[in-house]
């Protein structure tokens, strides 16, 4: 390659420099990680001897009870089942949500065409179709509550890019299992298509695991 071509090639690679905010944001991210790892090390250093002492005491206690021959009550499981759900988490990886074709903004959420609270009944893998490498699942829910539209079928099927048990083609922080209760937001599979005809869900949208406060928020926003 002569010098002219080399220079032309180099100029084709020119990009604007990042803004100071972008650089600062990236630096803050690693600074947080660094601060977290220091804290974890400190906690580990403090907890290790405490835990070791507790474990030793427990072993000594058990041995003493066995040697004493005193009948002891066996530990039993709590009689009540938990009525609360763990805090709601997105099905997809929030760290990569920036890659979606659009931002997951409150404005966008207010406009979702399909949203409901449902329990996963079944998930059937769809054979790869015209898009090589695209694997999706038909996931049927028993709908506990329709948010948008305000009413619908008791059983409803969406097409998801995430299968049960973390079967995914993209990274997922919190997948789902059959029987899990989820908050699902969906969008038409084709532009202008019927949103109630097996919509896309679970990737690049607001779908997440169920909890009461989040469901309340969805109800409040989507009932408008």
């Amino acid at each position: 390659m002569n010098d002219d071509n080399w220079t032309t090639l180099q100029s084709a690679g020119k990009v604007p420099p990042p803004s100071p905010e972008v650089l600062a944001h990236a630096t803050q991210r690693v600074a947080k990680v660094a601060a977290g790892s220091t804290r974890r090390r400190t906690v580990r250093r403090f907890l290790a001897p405490v835990l070791a002492t507790a474990a030793t005491a427990a072993v000594i206690g058990v041995v003493a009870l066995q040697q004493g021959g005193t009948p002891t009550a066996l530990p039993v499981a709590p009689a009540t089942t938990p009525t609360t759900y763990p805090p709601s988490k997105p099905l997809g990886d929030p760290n990569v949500s920036h890659s979606c074709a659009y931002p997951l903004s409150p404005e966008r959420f207010a406009k979702v065409p399909v949203a409901f609270d449902g329990t996963v009944l079944s998930a059937v893998k769809i054979p790869e179709t015209q898009d090589a490498g695209l694997t999706t699942w038909n996931v049927t829910f028993v709908v506990n509550e329709w948010f948008r539209p305000s009413s619908g079928k008791q059983q409803f099927t969406v097409q998801m890019g995430i299968g049960p048990g973390h079967q995914v083609q993209t990274s997922v922080t919190h997948g789902y299992e059959i029987g899990d209760r989820l908050l699902i937001s969906g969008a038409p599979r084709t532009e202008g298509g019927d949103p109630m005809d097996r919509p896309w869900a679970g990737v690049c949208d607001f779908s997440r695991t169920y909890d009461v406060p989040t469901a309340d928020t969805w109800r409040k926003i989507l009932s408008k």
Partner: peptide
């Protein structure tokens, strides 16, 4: 990670 997302984005016209 984004192969699927990109494929889906293409499917919905983006």
């Amino acid at each position: 990670k984004h192969r699927l997302r990109s494929t889906m984005a293409r499917v919905i016209g983006i």
